[in-house]
Amino acid sequence: MNPRLDYGRLFLNAYVYAVLAFVLVPIAIILPMAFSEPSYLTFPPQGFTLDWFSTYFGDSRWMAATWLSLRVATLTAILTAVIGTMATYAMVRGRRGFGSVFQVLLMGPIVIPHIAIAVSLYMFLSAMGLLGTMFGYVLAHTVLAMPFVVFTVAAALSRVDADLEAAAMSCGASRFTAFHQVTLPLILPNVASGGLFAFIISFDEPVVSFFLAGIRDKTLPRMMFDDIEQNLTPVIPAVAVILTLASVAIIFGTALLRHRAQRMQAIGREA
């Protein structure tokens, strides 16, 4: 032990832990409420029940919203991963003619507030008759998630030596075969983690869904929004528990994917 106390460091640590408490406490408090008996939210929780989970799983509106969100998020993840990977590959390995337009379009959904995107899409999709349809949600969420997939894939592609494809082609592979046999296997974990990211963005997207939803076809975030706004029952904590468990699983999943990808690409770069 250092005999001289380092007050600066002590203070810094205390401050950091206080901030972390600020970050964690709200989540740590809401989760146990899912098991509390009263129909209003109190802390500490009283009694123990799984009723709120059965309410959630038994309610056709919650189930419909959950399934809709799952379907939308899955399609969004696939669509974003495919379109994003194609465009990024062309941008990184092609002639960079449209580079600046590409950049601006990617910044767009990050910079432009979601409320603006939501309102403009509301008008656009209602004109197209797609309001409240799954297709409308998927289109909207694909736009919102696109930048994150592109960044993930671009980072991966920049780690894969372009000469690997040249080598494959000198071995007789066509451009497509070279991509398919060499580059794609090396970036696939990143494409998948980008897709997972898109899934989460879609699944947890409240603003655009808020405007696009009709009366029946509500996504899960929209259902939660309405519930919080109107009665705030312990179904919300129950959903929170389920979502948090899913998030933790996905975090581990993506961390694993990223780890694998970087190991592979690191080898690719050295090699």
Partner: peptide, 8 residues
Amino acid sequence: SSVLVRTA
């Protein structure tokens, strides 16, 4: 974790 969960 969900923005809505945190807001709730």
